[in-house]
């Protein structure tokens, strides 16, 4: 049993996009804030901070996760994936990201990181999604400027491209 005191900072370690990272957090520190302020991983955005808007969505141990509804202390020892882990290299976009660019599926970009994480996770295990399934998935995200139509189009295009590519793509 581990009891972390409220008024002290405690070490938190986990794997972030395949790299081991470490920082210090009080028990009350949200994972979204830990990623952004302690680790400088500002790709994950913070919107409503009560789990509704979806901007802060990441993947923890293979589970879609609202990082604003998760404490940094909870993910000690876990495996995290954020939007910084999507591109195969610094100068190249992944299949899903390219589809977003082609379809103008982002405008201000605030909701985009969370939406990309949800779609990346979903498309990895659902190779031939229907439009209705994509819409259902996107119901967990709020976009207020781009509009959902190009986002859905990008998701379907990316799914088709991933399904037709022979290699196992890890960089969706």
């Amino acid at each position: 049993m581990t009891r972390l005191k409220a008024d002290q900072r405690h070490s938190v370690r986990f794997s972030l996009n395949g790299k081991s990272v470490e920082g210090e957090a009080e028990p009350r520190m949200l994972l979204s804030d830990f990623l952004r302020h302690q680790l400088g991983a500002t790709g994950t955005h913070v919107g409503c901070e009560h789990g509704v808007c979806g901007a802060c969505t990441i993947v923890v141990d293979g589970m879609l996760t609202r990082s604003c509804l998760t404490l940094a202390a909870q993910v000690d020892g876990c495996d995290l994936k954020t939007v910084e882990g999507l591109a195969p290299s610094a100068d190249r976009l992944g299949v899903l990201q390219q589809a977003f660019r082609r379809n103008h599926a982002l405008q201000c970009g605030f909701c985009t990181a969370g939406i990309l994480m949800s779609l990346d996770h979903y498309l990895a295990s659902n190779r031939a999604p229907t439009e209705a399934e994509i819409r259902d998935l996107l119901s967990g995200h709020i976009c207020r400027c781009t509009g959902y139509t190009p986002i859905i189009q990008a998701a379907l295009e990316a799914a088709a491209e991933l399904a037709s590519s022979k290699k196992e793509t890890s960089d969706a």
């Binding site: 049993m1 581990t2 009891r3 972390l4 005191k5 409220a6 008024d7 009080e26 028990p27 009350r28 949200l30 804030d33 901070e49 404490l71 202390a73």
Partner: peptide, 17 residues
């Protein structure tokens, strides 16, 4: 907003809880 301060206990047995 951010949560208020609290102690955090990671239970390893139901007895801990």
């Amino acid at each position: 907003m951010k949560p208020p301060a609290f102690d955090y206990l990671r239970a390893e047995t139901v007895g801990d809880v």
